[in-house]
């Protein structure tokens, strides 16, 4: 199936540009590859280079363009098990703030697993076990005293199959604010969220209808609106378009580009064009002979697709694999 199994994670140096380039459906630039190296995993405190401007990433406290650390979620030497089966082997990576990061890789390599460690959704799977550290703005989200409920409120998630609750459109969006004791004007928040999800015009006259009465693409945007309404900082998307037609897919992608001004987005996709079109950074994951997933390569999307460092990546993105 594949020729080599790297023992450790190899991530080529790369530097995303510090300022957000305007996002167009097909991205052209992310900045020169290979400049200003920041080694992964976890940069060593004393390590020279990579932390300066522009766009050193991964170090808490290292400001991007607004005094915040460039990294939001960081995985440090993560391994995951379902019962005795190891699904993820020793993955380290970080997710840049207000960027769109795409996770690509063959089916079953552990993309969803990895995504779901970022908001502790896997806690719901009884056999799941995790080693390593996951931090969010520097805080260990699996640390003692951290409640997964709080983590999930700040790291929202959109699923592969649209899963609106069997309630009205309004109640779907109001669900999160309500449970979180939102004090402001709910109507306004619902409208704002639906507008941001580019759904308002289509549903403003039927807010009381069931969320299930919408089309698939509308349902998925409703789920995005629902997620936005809780005001998370990160939105995880697990193949959000795989159940949608091309038109609805494009709508969602435009929406993502729009949302990434305020939100950090991580998207899992099987669609190479989608990853190429819609993301800033791409992480390629595959699995070893023991079917445990590991990161092969991470870099600016353009480079991953045009000039990958690894044979495995090249094979995959060019469709010779999986």
């Amino acid at each position: 199936m594949e020729e080599e199994t790297p023992v450790t994670v190899t991530t080529p140096p790369h530097t995303p540009s510090g300022t957000q380039p305007p996002r167009v459906p097909i991205r052209i630039v992310t900045g020169p590859a290979g400049a200003g190296a920041a080694a992964m995993p976890a940069p060593q405190p004393g390590e020279p280079g990579g932390h300066g401007e522009p766009g050193g990433h991964g170090e808490p406290g290292n400001s991007g363009n607004s005094g915040e650390p460039a990294t939001t979620v960081r995985l440090e030497a993560i391994s995951c098990w379902y019962g005795g089966f190891r699904a993820i082997r020793d993955v380290s990576l970080d997710i840049e703030r207000r960027r769109i990061t795409a996770l690509i890789g063959p089916s079953g390599c552990g993309k969803s697993t990895l995504l779901r460690t970022m908001n502790r959704m896997n806690d719901l799977v009884p056999s799941f076990r995790l080693a390593g550290r996951v931090t969010f703005d520097g805080v260990d989200i699996y640390g003692r005293g951290v409640d997964p409920v709080v983590v999930r409120r700040r790291v929202g998630m959109v699923f592969q199959k649209p899963n609106p609750f069997p309630k009205s459109i309004y109640d779907n969006v109001a669900f999160g604010p309500r449970i979180n004791g939102y004090r402001g004007k709910l109507d306004e928040l619902v409208e704002r969220s639906l507008r941001r999800a580019a759904l308002w015009d289509e549903v403003k006259d039927k807010l009381r209808q069931s969320g299930l009465s919408l089309s698939g693409g509308q349902q998925q945007r409703l789920c995005i609106a629902r997620t936005i309404a809780t005001e998370p900082e990160v939105i995880l998307m697990d193949e959000p378009c795989s159940a949608l037609d091309p038109r609805a897919t494009l709508q969602i992608e435009e929406l993502m580009a729009e949302l990434s001004r305020d939100y950090t987005i991580v998207i899992v996709t099987h669609n190479m064009q989608q990853a190429a079109r819609a993301s800033d950074t791409t992480i390629f994951i595959t699995m070893g002979d023991d079917r445990a997933g590991y990161v092969v390569e991470r870099g600016p999307t353009l480079r991953i697709f045009t000039n990958p460092e690894h044979r495995l990546t090249e094979d995959y993105v060019s469709g010779r694999f999986g």
């Binding site: 808490p60 931090t135 520097g138 805080v139 900082e233």
Partner: peptide, 16 residues
């Protein structure tokens, strides 16, 4: 959730 500063610079208030 505030007790885990990860680097020399403490996590910003957003963690609260």
């Amino acid at each position: 959730m505030t007790a885990h500063p990860a680097g020399p610079v403490a996590a910003p208030a957003a963690a609260a």
